[in-house]
Amino acid sequence: MISFLIYKAILVGVVFGITLFIAAYSTYAERKVAAFLQDRIGPDRAGPFGILQPLADGLKFIMKEEIIPNVSNKILFVLGPSIAMLTALMAGVVIPWGSTLVINGETYSLQIVDLNIGILYVFAVVSIGVYGIMIGGWASNNKFSLLGAIRASAQMISYEIAMGLSIIALIMMTGTLSLREITELQTGAVGSSWNFWNVVYQPVGFLIFLVCAFAECNRTPFDLPECETELVGGYHTEYSSMKLGFYLFAEYINMFISSAVISTLYFGGYNFPFMNDLGMDQNIITIIGTIGLFIKIGFFIFFFMWIRWTIPRFRYDQLMNLGWKILIPLAIINIFITGLFGIL
């Protein structure tokens, strides 16, 4: 049992480190992608090609003066970004980052906890994140922050319904809520065992989930909570130093987690084509699979950025109409069709 806990402690540390690393470098990637799409160079001063930029940014965030406005509610003002960051970090626990490693006859799973309600856990933890934004926006005692926070909460809860419904169609096919079991059902993809990735069976569900993931992360075209043309800076207008950093960082961590969940649910997770046909050792398959998972995640993070610098943001009534009047009925029709195929 002690060895179990030590191994899990190491894994928790690694996942925590990788999450922060990827979130930090997503900020760099975002600026580079933006620069590329707008025919600019982007950050290039800190280190070769500017790769030390995230470190410089982080250091600057910590060294800045901490300003808590007089009129704000001080405890809640600090609590807001802390909750946002905490909930963002907690979601990575149930995601299967890889298959199992066999070392000296002992098997080690590259997943921190295999909860049998994995998807519900992710939903639960991510939903608490809305409190971070709401508390921060309200505590600022600023009209624009308040508007941004209210918009964020209304948007996130609206899209959560469509997101939950899109997952149901997938659960009907897999019959499990555990992320590892869902991944195992997609083993091989192509090759001796013909288990296609779920996206082949659930294209509509995948699209609904993707749109909702954008809305849940407050990313363009759904970034109305921080819509700078009407709301100054949105819910984090009053924030400075690391508290602002936490809000921005939490957004990138949420993007990373959403990409990981999309890859796991619809794109086979750590599975890759012909994985069982090349006669490779289990450990090598696991390592390639984990690299493959991170390539998929990287693609989706890039996709988030690509959309951000391509599509203008929606109007609020368009956003609500899309969520309630299009995505929810579409998700219910998707459940109905999946059910028909399931019982035939």
């Binding site: 899990k8 894994l11 960051m85 905490l86 970090l89 907690m90 626990v93 921190i112 906890v113």
Partner: peptide, 14 residues
């Protein structure tokens, strides 16, 4: 237990 551990690590970091 690892979930609690992750919570401690994250809360500690914050």
């Amino acid at each position: 237990a690892p979930i609690a551990l992750m919570f401690l690590v994250a809360a500690g970091f914050v």
